[in-house]
Design a protein around this nucleic acid. Sequence first.
DNA 1: CTTGCCCCTGTACTAACTACAGATCGTAGA
DNA 2: TCTACGATCTGTAGTTAGTACAGGGGCAAG
Lengths: 137, 137
Amino acid sequence: MSKNNSVTNLLRSELAKATGCNLETIRYYEQIGIMPDPPRTARGFRVYGEEHVRRLRFVMRMRELGFSLNEVRGLLTLVDGGTQTCAEVHERTLAHLSDVRARITDLKRIESVLEETAAKCSGEDVPECPVLDALSA
Amino acid sequence: MSKNNSVTNLLRSELAKATGCNLETIRYYEQIGIMPDPPRTARGFRVYGEEHVRRLRFVMRMRELGFSLNEVRGLLTLVDGGTQTCAEVHERTLAHLSDVRARITDLKRIESVLEETAAKCSGEDVPECPVLDALSA
DNA sequence: CTTGCCCCTGTACTAACTACAGATCGTAGA
DNA sequence: TCTACGATCTGTAGTTAGTACAGGGGCAAG
């Protein structure tokens, strides 16, 4: 019954340093169940192992890619469950991809409106601003 | 002393319908000072005029263009103040434009990562998922 | 022995709304 | 006249993804 599933024993601040994740964010992830409650030392300090590092890195990567915490939660249950994982993951990746593409399209529209707007303006110190008028219309 | 500065007298629900803005959002904008407290009827109902419609439309347009409520607040003080407006507006528009462009660049990076990731996956029902492995790494 | 540091906990704050509970008021129908 | 309905009003809480701060405990060095 010897527990040798974790090699490194990290405190919370060390996990934060190791992953680049904010200290408080780790606690937050534990509160909402994205990260498991880690074991504690006799003094009550959280102790993390390799598996926590891996899981947190995964979460951070997914967040970077724009997945919401709920989506990340979903992906994690796939990881944890391990059943027909690949097809599901593929599907969710594609769904998220189309989401990202929609946001890009949206931002491009905004970009061109802002470009037009800026072009209309001479940049001089005129009290009457054609840009504001254009935008209000 | 006759007040004829507003032609239309709209209730809140009518302002909402006229602008497409959510009813509750209007109250919220009043709470945070984006919209002014409107005059009331004897029964305490809010009454809006043309100037409210115009202002709310402006706010909505700016929000659509991705300005934060704080930025909108700033633009509104320029509108209200009316001093050296144009140069300032030009500047803020450009600042926001570069912001939008940065977000586009970011999303494009995410897009290509997701594309690569999805391409790696066959979409078959394999329990071991190369995508998840790739994403964790 | 006291100062400082690191850890702990709980709570409040952010943005930009949305939603719901409970009060009131005027009018329309029975 | 009584009651029900619809519209408005107010205040408060929930959402997402964290960040920040207040207050308490224990260990170690000076």
